[in-house]
């Protein structure tokens, strides 16, 4: 068994899967912390569904679906921000509208193109084992750009996540900071679709930050812990999927959910131990 496992790890596809998993895990958690705290958790879900239209368009037109998916994800983020800022519609409702429209358009385009095929199923459910070296290089370059963008706006994003009004008083351009977050999310979602698939990508944005938030380690500590949990979930999940011969995306998500459950239980235990009645 261990010999078989070592043999699997010696293959290029397994190494590429682990490398891309680690890279995307860090990017997802870095972006996800701000999304969760800004109460835009489902933005990733909405943009993933919007990018489905882009993937369908890309497959239909014979261009790289990642590029068309990115275009549609950015378009989706613009719509969400526009609708939410227009008044009388909250961010979650705006995300819901964009999500439904994106998925519907994708289904119609797919139908017009002659139905689902293997490529499209890979984007829906993820197929990290088929990631190429070129895709990893692209993800690495994009990842560095996203991390740099978030690092540049780190304090602005921190402040608007806590107290948007005070951020404005400090001269923070809240619209610009929100646009940066939405753009970063669009990039991360499109890159992560290859790992987890359209249907599961938002889990990687939401679960690791939620796990980290159970540990009261301050804001910077939460960002760091979120990255560590996400890394553990992705690498552990991909290795488990090799060992159990299961699809990687869902195993990564379920392992993240397990880590969250353990952290949640730990938090509850601490709370009950601290309460006077305990």
């Amino acid at each position: 068994m261990s010999g078989d496992f070592a043999e699997i790890l010696s293959y290029g596809f397994a190494q590429r899967a682990l490398l891309s998993g680690a890279l995307l895990a860090v990017l997802c958690s870095l972006t996800g912390v701000f999304l969760v705290l800004r109460r835009l958790s489902l933005l990733g879900e909405g943009l993933a569904h919007t990018s489905f239209t882009g993937i369908a368009v890309g497959l239909l037109a014979g261009i790289n679906p990642v590029y068309s998916a990115f275009g549609f994800a950015v378009l989706g983020s613009v719509f969400v921000l526009k609708i939410a800022r227009g008044g009388r519609v909250h961010g979650d409702a705006a995300t819901g509208i964009v999500l439904a429209v994106g998925m519907s358009l994708g289904v119609i385009i797919t139908r017009l193109a002659g139905g689902f095929n293997v490529d499209l199923m890979n984007y829906l459910f993820g197929s990290v084992l088929t990631v190429t070296s070129g895709e990893i290089k692209f993800a690495a370059v994009a990842g560095v750009a996203i991390a740099l963008l978030i690092a540049l706006f780190f304090r602005e994003l921190e402040c608007i996540c806590f107290d948007q009004e005070y951020a404005r008083v400090c001269g923070v351009n809240v619209r610009a900071a929100d646009a940066v977050l939405a753009l970063a999310t669009a990039c991360v979602v499109v890159l992560t679709i290859r790992l987890a698939g359209i249907l599961l990508v938002s889990a990687l944005l939401i679960i690791p930050p939620s796990t980290a938030m159970q540990f009261s380690k301050g804001f910077k500590g939460t960002v760091l812990l979120s990255c560590l949990f996400s890394l553990a979930g992705a690498l552990g999940g991909i290795l488990l999927s090799f060992a159990l011969d299961l699809p990687a995306g869902p195993v990564v998500v379920l392992l993240n959910a397990l880590l969250f459950s353990a952290a949640f239980a730990y938090r509850k235990f601490l709370s009950s131990a601290d309460s006077p009645s305990a």
């Binding site: 705290l37 109460r39 304090r155 602005e156 921190e158 402040c159 996540c161 806590f162 107290d163 948007q164 009004e165 005070y166 951020a167 008083v169 400090c170 001269g171 923070v172 980290a212 938030m213 009261s216 380690k217 301050g218 804001f219 910077k220 500590g221 939460t222």
Partner: peptide, 23 residues
Amino acid sequence: RLLNPHFPATALEVAALGLLGGK
């Protein structure tokens, strides 16, 4: 009440945000 009730920052991190306007 408009502040994020689940924000995980420490008291020190929140106090430091008062310096943001001068940066």
